[in-house]
C-alpha cells in the first residue's frame, strides 16, 4: 500500500511511453514476419496480440520510416470498393534485421531476469 501511494506515476507513465515507442517497430516486424498486412489490419493485429494502445496515426510515419530504411516493402492493391489497400511485407533486409533484434531482445530479457532475482 505504501508503495502504491508513493509510486511516481508520472515517471512510470513516461517510462512506459518510451518502452512502447522503442518496442513498436520490433512488434511490427514480428507481425509482418508471419504474412503481409495492410495498415488498418496491422493496427488490429497489434491490438489483438498486445495490450498496447497504439496511437494509430503514429503507425504510418513509422511504417514510412521502415520503408525508407529498406526494412519493409509495400504495394498498393486495388479493391472492389475502389479504395486500394497498402500492403506491407518484410524485406530480405527486414528479416535479417528482425533476427538480430530477436537476439538482442532475448539477451536483454535474460539480463533483466538475472538482475531481478
Amino acid at each position: 500500500m505504501y508503495y502504491i501511494c508513493c509510486m511516481n506515476n508520472e515517471f512510470v507513465q513516461n517510462w512506459f511511453s518510451q518502452v512502447k515507442k522503442g518496442t513498436l517497430s520490433y512488434i511490427i516486424l514480428i507481425i509482418l514476419d508471419e504474412k503481409e498486412y495492410y495498415g488498418y489490419e496491422l493496427v488490429q493485429e497489434i491490438k489483438i496480440h498486445t495490450t498496447l494502445e497504439v496511437a494509430e496515426g503514429t503507425l504510418y510515419p513509422l511504417l514510412n520510416r521502415l520503408k525508407t530504411e529498406g526494412i519493409v516493402d509495400s504495394k498498393w492493391i486495388e479493391q472492389e470498393s475502389g479504395i486500394p489497400r497498402k500492403y506491407y511485407t518484410l524485406s530480405k533486409e527486414g528479416r535479417e534485421t528482425l533476427t538480430e533484434m530477436k537476439k538482442i531482445w532475448s539477451a536483454l530479457g535474460t539480463a533483466i531476469q538475472k538482475i531481478q532475482k
Binding site: Y40, E56, G57, Y60, W76, S81, I83, P84, K86
Partner: peptide, 29 residues
C-alpha cells in the same frame, strides 16, 4: 491514399446511425 484507406477500412461496415460515432472515433485515434 494511406489515410483514406485507413478511414475506409475502419468505417465501411458502420450502420448509418453509427457512422458519425465510428468516424469520430477513427479520426480521434
Amino acid at each position: 491514399m494511406e489515410f483514406n484507406s485507413h478511414i475506409y477500412e475502419a468505417t465501411h461496415n458502420a450502420a448509418p446511425e453509427n457512422e458519425v460515432d465510428i468516424l469520430m472515433d477513427t479520426l480521434d485515434k
